[in-house]
Simulated scan of single mutants.
Amino acid sequence: MASTVLLLALVLISLTIAFASDPSPLQDLCVADLTGAVSVNGFACRNPQMVQAGDFFFSGLHLAGNTTNPAGSKVTPVTVAQIPGLNTLGISMARIDYAPYGINPPHTHPRGTEIFTVIEGSLEVGFVTSNPENRLITKVLQKGDVFVFPVNLIHFQRNVGNCKAVAIAALSSQNPGVITIANAVFGSKPKIGSDVLVKAFQVDKNVINYLQSKF
C-alpha cells in the first residue's frame, strides 16, 4: 500500500513538472541580462547588486497603439524584453488596440495560456481545438468580459463594433512567443515550396503565389 501511494505521488509530481509553464524561480529575483553572452533557456541573471526599480517597471499601456495597418490592430507587449525583472517569473501581458472591424489575426502562443479582458468595445473571440475535431469555440465579449485561450491553440479576436476596442491580455510565460498563422505559412524565409502548399490547401499554384506575394 505504501509503495502504491509513493508511486502515485511520484506520478503526480511528474505531471506537475510536465504541465508547468515557465520554471519556478529559485531566488527572490533574476533580472534578465538581455545583453549577456551566456545562452540559457531564458536569460542569465544580472548581478543582484546592480538591480534597480526600473528593471521591474514599464510605462506605456495607457497609450493607444497605431492600428493603421491591414489587420487594423496593434499589440503592445510587456514581456521580459520590456521588463527584465520578469525573468523566471512566468508571466507577461499585452495591450491590444483594434480599429473598427479590425482583427488580431489567427495566431498561437507556443509557450503560454492567455487570459483576455475587454476594456473597451465589443470583440468576437475564438479558438480552435486540435485535430481531428478542429472545433471552433467562439463568443462575443463586451466591456469587462474575460475569456481564456489555452496554450498553443490557434485563436483570434475581431472588433464587431464601429468604434475602437481595447483589451488587456495576461499570459503564463515571461516570453510566450507568437506565431501568426498566415505570416508563418505564406511569409516564411525562405518560402515553403509552392507544391507543398498547393497540396496542403488544395488550391491552384497561382493562388499560392499570390498569397506568398502578400506576405
Rank of each mutant, 00 (worst) to 15 (best):
G36C: 05
A37R: 13
A37V: 10
S39T: 12
S39C: 00
V40I: 14
A44W: 01
N47V: 06
P48D: 04
M50H: 05
M50L: 13
V51Q: 13
Q52G: 12
Q52L: 13
A53T: 13
A53F: 12
G54L: 12
D55I: 06
F57P: 02
S59L: 07
S59A: 11
G60F: 05
L61A: 08
L61V: 04
L61Q: 06
H62W: 03
H62C: 00
H62L: 05
H62M: 04
A64M: 03
A64E: 12
G65I: 04
G65W: 05
G65A: 05
N69T: 05
A71H: 10
S73H: 04
S73G: 06
S73M: 03
V75M: 13
V75Y: 06
T79D: 11
T79Y: 14
A81G: 07
I83G: 03
P84I: 08
P84S: 07
G85L: 09
L86F: 15
L86A: 01
N87W: 09
T88I: 03
L89C: 04
G90P: 12
S92T: 04
S92H: 05
S92F: 05
M93K: 02
A94L: 08
A94D: 05
A94R: 06
R95T: 06
Y98Q: 03
G102M: 02
N104S: 15
N104V: 10
N104F: 11
P106V: 03
P106W: 04
H107S: 09
H107C: 06
T108K: 09
R111G: 01
G112T: 03
T113I: 10
T113P: 02
E114K: 03
I115P: 00
F116S: 12
V118N: 11
V118F: 12
E120P: 01
S122L: 09
S122C: 01
L123W: 07
E124P: 00
E124I: 01
V125I: 01
F127V: 08
V128Q: 02
T129M: 11
T129Y: 11
T129S: 15
T129V: 10
N131A: 14
N131V: 07
P132R: 07
P132F: 06
P132L: 08
E133M: 09
E133C: 00
N134G: 12
N134K: 14
R135H: 06
L136H: 06
L136M: 12
L136S: 03
I137D: 02
I137K: 09
T138S: 15
T138D: 00
V140P: 00
V140I: 14
Q142I: 00
K143I: 00
K143V: 06
D145S: 13
V146R: 10
F147P: 03
F149Q: 08
